[in-house]
Design a protein around this nucleic acid. Structure first.
Lengths: 249, 249
DNA sequence: CGACATGTTGAACCTCATCAACCGACGTGG
DNA sequence: CCACGTCGGTTGATGAGGTTCAACATGTCG
């Protein structure tokens, strides 16, 4: 295989990538991108399967291309809490740590763009820009985690469910071009089943179900086939969630 | 003042620092330390006063030398949640962000070792080792935040209070030499009042008070003058907290 | 068809929040 | 000096919000 052609293919694969500009690789210039591409491979994962498990050194890092990943922690007696959700173009994997202190599990079918642990570490060492970008992402994750702590510690069941739906609406609005404003009533799919929503909000399945029916009856949301949600008035939902509308930037 | 002597003083000030090896500055070599020292100044803060406020660009970063800082978020109607506690030798300030999304408030009297925003950013740019160290700290903070999410979402009031006391015991054991093992019954001061503990655990003052009396009556803890706590059997406390003993490393 | 997974709804119960009274320590001003 | 208010903490009575347990509905897959 002529190396020139291969190189072209390498570049174009990344440049055609849907999440190219918003993922961590956005920090890289074309030459670096070639290197990254050499060590990258895509992987698809079925809903429900474990991607990274507790206490064992993860063998790879990855960009989330599509689908949703849940990060979970479980107490000895089985109580579970989702401590983070990853949507495209989020990054999966804790740089520099021997082991992740949580499980990563596919909430839906997931496509990943994976990098082996060693080669990614090498890339990280060579390109401070990449580390910097990863650092900023981590700071954002920390902010989200703290925002969620307020929800878990202080919000009522109704506020929790409304906040969750608002989060989904927000992430859905950001899925495409980051500058697209979203006029009209947002409409998106529920990527999590009731049990997962409950584990994310610190509630039970039943309470989540009841609160969703309440919001439905109040016409704050509309539900189709139990998966598709439309929100006629985002402000109404935000008001119930007990928070201002998050800025779409 | 002869510059040689000044330089000596600069070095020795940092080298005598109690938190020197465990703080972020541990990443710096002697020469870098001199630079850092030039831009550093200590500051003491009274319990209860606000250090960094929401939405305004913080003008400095700092190492916590002594005391405890609480990071708080407040909902529109006044409900409050503590989203993080900083003990020595933790680092205060979000690198690279325009504004902190929370308040930082002195829970006790606090001593800080402050760096002005601009000069610290400059130092950060020049010394990748420092950024790297800061990154690792941030990852640890993220882990703690997620651990706390489990507590907030899934633990009972009794487990929450026990977990909090366990956290204090742990941080207290780490205060001195990082390799010191702690034989015997741990004994430490409660740095937070009931209201703060409640805001940290997502409970009310009354519930916190009741749970502490319960633990006292069960002789899991002993309380002197309402501030000093001794734990006769750490394992008993850990068992109630619903978690294994955190490793002292 | 039956087995299973997912979700909804109802009734009973329980944990924790709420409201209120009270206590001791402390500081301040008459 | 004491009366007074304030602050931090404790304790009790009551009730609401969520959990728990159970039954049922719906859809899917063998």
């Amino acid at each position: 295989m002529p190396s020139d052609t291969a190189k072209q293919a390498d570049i174009s694969r990344c440049e055609q990538c849907a999440i190219r500009h918003r993922a961590v690789c956005g920090a890289l210039d074309p030459e670096e991108l070639v290197k990254l591409n050499r060590i990258a491979h895509t992987r698809t994962i079925k809903a429900g399967s474990v991607i990274i498990s507790d206490e064992s050194a993860p063998s790879f890092f990855a960009n989330v291309m599509s689908g949703v990943i849940k990060l979970t922690k479980t107490l000895a007696d089985g109580r579970q809490q989702i401590v983070g959700l990853l949507f495209p173009p989020d990054f999966l994997g804790r740089a520099y740590s021997g082991s992740n202190p949580y499980f990563a599990e596919a909430a839906t079918d997931v496509e990943l763009c994976c990098f082996s642990h060693d080669s990614f570490q090498r890339l990280l060492k060579e390109h401070p820009g990449l580390e910097h970008r990863l650092f900023e992402r981590t700071l954002d994750e920390l902010d989200s985690a703290r925002e969620w702590m307020v929800l878990l510690g202080r919000k009522s069941a109704e506020e929790k469910v409304a906040s969750f739906l608002l989060l989904l609406a927000h992430r859905h609005a950001m899925r495409g071009c980051p500058h697209s404003t979203t006029p009209g009533a947002p409409c998106f799919e529920l990527p999590l089943k009731r049990a997962d929503i409950a584990d994310y909000l610190g509630l039970t399945i039943e309470t989540v179900s009841r609160q969703i029916t309440r919001l439905k009856k109040a016409d704050v949301i509309r539900l189709h086939e139990n998966r598709i949600i439309t929100v006629p008035h985002l402000e109404a939902l935000a008001k119930i969630a007990g928070q201002e509308l998050p800025p779409i930037h």
